[in-house]
Computed example of a mutant assay.
Amino acid sequence: MAGDVAQCIARGSSFRFQDLYALMYQRNIGRVQTDNNLYNPLKPKQFELNVNYRSHNGILRLASSVIQLIQHFFPDSIDKLSPEYGEIDGPQPLVFEGYQANTLFTTDISDKNMKKKDEDTYIEFGAKKRVVGNISDIGLVLTVFEAKGLEFNDVLLYDFFSDSPARSNWRVILSVLDDYSEGIRTFSHEKHYILSSELKHLYVAVTRARERLWIFDEDPEFSEPIRKYWKCKKLVKNE
Rank of each mutant, 00 (worst) to 15 (best):
N134Y: 09
T103N: 13
G126V: 02
K115T: 11
I109N: 10
K117N: 05
L140Y: 11
I138N: 15
N134M: 03
Q100V: 03
M114V: 11
T106Q: 12
K112G: 03
N102L: 02
K129G: 01
G90T: 05
N113M: 02
E124N: 05
K116T: 00
I109A: 04
S110Y: 07
D111E: 15
A101C: 03
V132I: 09
N102D: 10
G126C: 05
F105G: 00
D89F: 12
I109K: 06
T121G: 00
K115Q: 15
D120C: 04
Y122M: 07
T106C: 02
D108F: 09
V131K: 02
V132A: 08
I138T: 13
Q92I: 04
N113L: 04
K129Y: 03
F96E: 02
I123N: 00
S110W: 02
I123L: 14
L104T: 06
K129L: 15
T103A: 08
K116H: 01
K128F: 01
L94M: 15
G86Y: 09
R130P: 01
L140H: 14
D111W: 01
R130K: 13
K117C: 05
D120Y: 05
S110V: 08
A101Q: 12
M114R: 10
V132S: 13
G133Y: 10
M114A: 04
G86L: 07
K116A: 01
D118V: 04
E124T: 02
E87T: 11
D111P: 06
I138V: 14
E97N: 06
S136M: 05
Q100P: 00
A127S: 14
G86I: 11
N102R: 03
A127K: 14
E97Q: 12
T106K: 10
Y122A: 00
E124H: 08
V95Q: 03
P91R: 11
E97Y: 00
P93C: 11
